[in-house]
């Protein structure tokens, strides 16, 4: 009895380990086999590197998109989370992968900022774009009971009370830059308080420990619906479809650059164009499916589709813009 139990247990553990190892190895092996299969691409599963932790906004967006894209690509797509270096670790690996279309990388706005911030030499020019999927603008959000209801009143109040505390998602983060721009354009003195990400900054705003935040509508949506916070304006050309009642900054009388976070898909820069076209078609179609759009809507995330060429141009513009801003704001 005892012996058979031991055997069973040993077998159980060994099989578990094999399973775990196998699970790891399939993720790895898909980038390094033969190169000849271009004609019938894709002939094997595709790996999607997500340079962010499992469970976050970037990760859930990737997984929802993958679920919808697999049927258009005709092969399964495995998501691998590679964290570290504010995303630069995963993105660098994606840029250095074999350019055969079997390793796709999710990239986000920080890709056009790394070099300017001195965090990594990696830029968008190390990739070939597939498509832009999501874009969320920065939004100036304050407590619901704050004594100002418009951007104008906010600026007037900030001029009388210099040093309003404005929470951001970390020094050099996209939301920090957004807040700096608002301060510079409006000519007001703000006290920038960095947090470890957007969620703790929003929590501090709800608790009344800071006076405003400049994060995306998705990150404050719950609190807007609960009536704890109100958004004064969004930093984009068009109103956000998540909070359509909120004006843009230019409607509110303050011209600021468009600042927002975005997420898109890329492949290494030497990937053949016909493979990029295949991927572009599959992911663009996937992003239009009802299952994906309803996921994004429920999560408060904005969908913005841009084709490969448009995405390239968009990243070029971002890269220039952030280069100038980071220099002007002396964040380097």
């Amino acid at each position: 009895m005892k012996n058979s139990m031991k055997k069973f247990l040993g077998l159980f553990i060994v099989s578990t380990l094999i399973f775990v190892l196998a699970a790891c190895s399939t993720k790895e092996s898909s980038g390094n086999t033969d190169n000849s299969g271009d004609k019938d691409y894709p002939s094997k599963p595709v790996t999607l590197i997500v340079p962010a932790a499992a469970g976050g906004g970037t990760d859930t967006t990737a997984r929802a998109l993958v679920a919808s894209a697999e049927k258009f690509l005709g092969k399964s797509i495995g998501v691998v989370n590679k964290t570290g270096g504010s995303g630069s670790v995963g993105m660098t690996e994606g840029a250095n992968a074999k350019p055969d279309g079997y390793t796709v990388s999710m990239v986000f706005v920080e890709l056009t900022m790394f070099e300017h911030l001195g965090l990594s030499p990696l830029t968008h020019n190390d990739f070939k774009p597939i498509a832009l999927i999501n874009l969320d603008p920065a939004a100036l959000t304050v407590p619901a009971d704050a004594p100002y209801d418009t951007v104008e009143e906010f600026i007037a109040y900030a001029k009388e009370n210099p040093g309003l505390k404005i929470g951001n998602a970390g020094t050099g983060s996209i939301w920090h830059i957004a807040a700096e721009i608002v301060g510079a354009e409006a000519g007001i003195e703000l006290n920038h308080v960095p947090f470890e990400g957007a969620a703790p900054a929003v929590t501090a705003l709800v608790g009344g420990h800071v006076d405003a935040v400049t994060v995306s509508p998705a990150e404050v949506k719950t609190q807007l619906d609960a009536g704890n916070l109100k958004t004064l304006a969004v930093m984009s050309d068009e109103r956000s479809n998540i909070i359509p009642d909120v004006p843009t900054f230019s409607e509110a009388g303050l011209e600021v650059s468009n600042i927002g976070t975005w997420r898109g898909l890329t492949v290494p820069k030497d990937t053949p164009d016909d493979i990029v076209a295949t991927l572009e078609a599959a992911f663009m179609k996937a992003a239009e499916q009802e299952e994906f759009t309803s996921f994004m809507e429920n999560s408060g995330l904005g969908i913005q589709l841009k084709s490969s060429n448009e995405f390239q141009q968009f990243m070029d513009e971002n890269y220039e813009l952030f280069g100038k801003m980071i220099k002007d704001l002396d964040l380097h």
């Binding site: 719950t222 609190q223 619906d225 609960a226 704890n228 996921f295 999560s299």
Partner: peptide
């Protein structure tokens, strides 16, 4: 929180 929101359950006082 993400899971609740995807299910259409908006956490908060409401």
């Amino acid at each position: 929180l993400g899971a609740l929101m995807v299910q259409g359950l908006q956490p908060g006082p409401m």
